[in-house]
């Protein structure tokens, strides 16, 4: 299923702690957060990291959630994550702590366009 990256399964409660234990700013490069709509109101969220200067597979933390869940924000660990979080909150309508909506969408754009209904 996952062709060329490693996946570390986690859960909504644990994810913040996992990332905190894992992330070392001088060694790892935070890439982005991505969400995949799995249908039926379920969503899979992945946090991607890659090592500096070494040819190695990217590492992803994966969490399965629903649209109703509140997803913890990692801005206090990785300050540059606010943009990725705001994007997901905007395009998927996810409830991410502290993420502002309206980054990309206008009032008359369809709400949460990337959701599959």
């Amino acid at each position: 299923m996952y062709k060329n990256f490693e996946v570390i399964e986690s859960s909504l409660e644990k994810i913040k702690e996992d990332i905190k234990n894992f992330y070392d700013p001088s060694k790892y490069h935070f890439i982005t957060i991505n969400a995949i709509d799995l249908g039926n109101g379920k969503v899979n969220i992945k946090w991607f990291f890659a090592k500096y200067e070494v040819m190695d597979k990217p590492i992803a933390f994966s969490v399965d959630a629903t649209y109703e869940d509140t997803i913890p924000s990692i801005v206090d660990i990785i300050p540059s994550a606010w943009l990725s979080e705001a994007e997901l909150a905007d395009l998927f309508g996810l409830n991410i702590e502290g993420a502002k909506k309206g980054l990309f969408l206008e009032p008359d754009s369809p709400p949460a366009p990337l959701r599959r209904s």
Binding site: K101, G102, L103, E106, P107, D108
Partner: peptide, 9 residues
């Protein structure tokens, strides 16, 4: 009326 720009962040 129609195109009020939202201010983000």
């Amino acid at each position: 009326n129609n195109l009020e720009v939202t201010k983000c962040d």
